[in-house]
Design a binder for these strands. Structure first.
Length: 140
DNA sequence: ATTGAGCGT
């Protein structure tokens, strides 16, 4: 039965030709920087802020939750934001609500990005002269 | 004043 071994070796060599090296060293998971802010998408139009907060409050202490709604129509845009007390609570919230159902729609929880360099910390308000510009007061 | 991926009044 040496022929079998030889044939197996040949097959082995044939399928061992790695001319096509997959340029995928690792799967690019949608991992973002840990942050207490969570971005929840896939929400239903009927989902409101209270429902979102109630759904995420079961996995951690939710500091603030908000469902983005259109300013003109006032209807939900289908996504919202949830802020936890700590990043670990946020992780638990993601692992607990990501890919789950909410109001009949599969929601996706992920770390939210910094909205703007400003309005993040009121304490870091830049210096500004609190004195009136001695002008533009009598104008208009 | 809907759309179904997305990042906020």
């Amino acid at each position: 039965m040496a022929a079998a071994a030889t044939a197996r070796s040949g097959f082995r060599r044939m399928f061992s030709i790695s001319a096509f090296s997959p340029p995928k060293p690792a799967t690019p998971p949608p991992k973002a920087d840990p942050s207490p802010n969570l971005f929840v998408s896939g929400l239903s139009k009927r989902t409101t802020t209270d429902g979102l907060r109630d759904a995420f409050a079961k996995f951690g202490e939710v500091i603030h939750a908000r469902v983005v709604t259109d300013r003109v129509t006032g209807f939900s845009k289908g996504f919202g934001f949830v802020r936890y007390a700590t990043v670990e609570d946020a992780a638990k919230g993601i692992e607990g609500m990501d890919g789950k159902f909410l109001d009949g729609w599969v929601i996706f929880a992920e770390y939210a990005r910094p909205r703007s360099p400003q309005q993040q910390d009121m304490n870091s308000q830049p210096q500004q002269s609190w004195g009136p510009p001695s002008s533009s007061w009598g104008a208009q």
